[in-house]
């Protein structure tokens, strides 16, 4: 890393080169893990308990959010053996609605803030956005980094924003969205992860869901390795949240495999691993029903909230 970093901030950014081809091969090898039967059922339930069930549409209404919260609590009617999801993720104006709907459950309410998804607003606006969401009752804040600042090399500014948003969060947990699809290389994903963790992120998160590619397995692996290194150096466990583009149950199980083999079982908990998704749970539910009944399922039999 260039020495100018040290000038602009207290960041201690060591070079952690990432070899793209090596990452792809590791991902491919991890994907050969075969998850069958009991392990599959247990894995899918675990993954469901880690979902941040998300709606982030301009068209979101209180009705839509309440519907989503019902799904978050009761993933599939008629099955009592399923967990609740970890959190519901909404825009700040919907936090209050979600809190009410989830009253009495352990489900957390996460709000995207800081001029999500672009982050193209002054810091003061972003901080106000954050404070508002927290005041509305958000347990968790999903912020976006300023990709423009990052890409032009102003890492100090990026770090400084994260630090200030963290302060604005108070007790709320902070997830820092890197928007990896805009960063260009895995080296930059690694660098952004290091900056976010050093600046106070409780979680690092791949994407807003508004940009493709989003949570590719390659990006997830690089971020998990960054978390592993951070833990090795500081003893502090940072959480991970892939979000966007996680297509199906198989992809979700592959994420668990990655977490297990890169970070270990200590991270296999919703308090350290989340999956941001809206449609994904139904595919996992179909697989669970298939395991229960032995019959391949159709989406018409699963509520689309």
């Amino acid at each position: 890393m260039s020495s100018s970093l040290a000038v602009s901030t207290n960041l201690n950014l060591q070079a952690h080169p990432v070899d793209e081809v090596g990452i792809r091969e590791r991902v491919a090898r991890l994907a050969t893990r075969s998850i069958k039967k009991a392990s599959k059922v247990e894995g899918l339930k675990l993954a469901l308990s880690m979902v941040d069930l998300t709606t982030l549409e301009g068209a979101d209404t209180p009705g839509k959010v309440r519907q989503l919260c019902t799904k978050a609590i009761h993933l599939h009617s008629g099955r009592k053996d399923l967990p609740m999801v970890a959190a519901v993720c909404v825009y700040p104006t919907m936090v209050r609605i979600a809190r009410e709907a989830l009253q009495g459950t352990p489900i957390q309410v996460a709000a995207v803030a800081t001029a999500f998804p672009s982050g193209m607003n002054p810091l003061a606006v972003k901080l106000e956005d954050t404070r508002y969401a927290v005041a509305e009752g958000a347990h968790e804040i999903d912020m976006v980094i300023s990709r423009g600042d990052f890409l032009r090399g102003d890492y100090g500014r990026v770090a400084n924003e994260i630090e200030q948003v963290k302060e604005a969060c108070g007790k709320a947990h902070l997830k820092v969205i890197l928007e990896t699809g805009e960063l260009g290389t895995l080296d930059r994903v690694r660098l952004a992860s290091d900056i976010a963790m050093q600046s106070g992120a409780d979680f690092i998160k791949t994407s807003t869901g508004k940009i493709q590619p989003a949570a590719t397995p390659e990006v997830v692996l690089v971020m998990l390795q960054a978390i592993s290194d951070f833990y090795r150096k500081t003893g502090k466990r940072i959480g991970m949240k892939p979000a966007g583009g996680i297509a199906n149950a198989k992809a979700a199980l592959n994420l668990l495999i990655m977490v297990r083999e890169v970070l270990g079982p200590a991270w296999l908990t919703p308090s350290l691993f989340r999956i941001g998704a809206s449609k994904l749970p139904n595919d996992m539910l179909m697989q669970l029903e298939k395991e229960r009944t032995g019959v391949y399922q159709g989406l018409d039999y699963f509520s689309n909230d």
Partner: peptide, 11 residues
């Protein structure tokens, strides 16, 4: 001797 070298192509 013939020496063969493998070098990844990635970004």
């Amino acid at each position: 001797e013939i020496k063969t070298t493998w070098h990844p192509v990635g970004g």
